[in-house]
Amino acid sequence: MNNPKSATVIGSGIIGLTSAIALQEAGFEVRIFTKELFDKSLSHKVGAVWFPYSIEPKEKTDRWAAISYKRYQEESKYAKGVSMISFLNAYSDLQEEKWVNQLPHGTAREATPTELPKGMENGLIADVPLTEPPLYLPFLVERFLESGGKIELRTFSTLGELDELEAWVVNCTGLGAKAICQDEDLHPMRGQILRAEKLEIPSFADPTRKGALSYLINRSEDSVIGGTDYDDDWNEQEDPEDTMKILDRLKNFGVNQKPKILETIVGLRPKRSAVRFEFDPNYPSIFHNYGHGGAGYTVAWGCALELANEFKEVILGK
Rank of each mutant, 00 (worst) to 15 (best):
Thr131Glu: 15
Lys318Trp: 04
Ser19Asp: 03
Thr107Lys: 02
Leu216Asn: 12
Arg190Ile: 13
Leu23Pro: 05
Arg209Ala: 10
Tyr72Ile: 02
Ala212Val: 06
Asp127Gln: 14
Leu186Gln: 14
Ile15Val: 13
Lys40His: 12
Phe156Asp: 00
Tyr69Ala: 15
Val141Gly: 06
Ala167Glu: 04
Glu96Gly: 04
Tyr297His: 01
Ser86Thr: 06
Ala20Glu: 04
Lys260Tyr: 08
Glu25Gly: 03
Trp301Asp: 03
Ser86Asn: 06
Val82Phe: 10
Lys150Val: 03
Arg209Gln: 13
Ile246Trp: 10
Asp280Leu: 10
Glu132Gln: 12
Asn2Cys: 00
Ile217Ala: 13
Glu75Gln: 13
Thr155Glu: 12
Arg195Asn: 09
Glu221Tyr: 14
Ala179Gln: 14
Glu263Ile: 01
Val128Ala: 08
Asp280Gly: 08
Ser92Thr: 06
Glu184Pro: 12
Ile21Met: 00
Leu130Gly: 15
Gly148Phe: 00
Leu23Ile: 08
Ser273Ile: 15
Arg272Thr: 04
Pro202Ile: 13
Phe139Asp: 11
Asn282Gly: 09
Ser86Phe: 01
Ser54Leu: 14
Tyr69Thr: 14
Thr243His: 15
Lys35Asn: 11
Val275Trp: 00
Tyr72Trp: 00
Asn89Ala: 11
Ser203Trp: 14
Cys172Met: 02
Trp301Met: 03
Glu75Cys: 10
Arg272Glu: 02
Trp234Leu: 12
Gln24Cys: 01
His292Cys: 15
Ile217Asn: 09
Lys210Ser: 12
Glu197Thr: 05
Phe287Lys: 00
His105Lys: 09
Asn309Tyr: 10
Val170Ala: 03
Gly160Val: 15
Asn3Ile: 02
Glu278Phe: 02
Pro104Arg: 07
Leu124Met: 13
Ser147His: 07
Ile315Ser: 08
Thr112Leu: 13
Leu130Ile: 06
Gly176Ser: 04
Asn3Leu: 04
Lys45Val: 03
Ile10Gly: 02
Phe311Ile: 00
Lys45Leu: 08
Glu164His: 08
Pro259Val: 05
Gln102Val: 11
Val266Gln: 04
Lys80Met: 10
Ala79Ser: 13
Leu94Arg: 11
Asn252Val: 07
Asn101Val: 11
Gly81Ser: 09
Glu200His: 07
Arg190Trp: 10
Leu213His: 08
Ser273Gln: 15
Asn171Cys: 15
Pro207Tyr: 07
Lys150Leu: 03
Leu268Val: 03
His288Pro: 12
Lys318Glu: 09
Phe33Trp: 01
Pro104Gln: 10
Leu153Thr: 10
Gly176Asn: 06
Arg209His: 11
Glu110Thr: 07
Leu140Lys: 02
Glu25Ser: 04
Thr107Val: 01
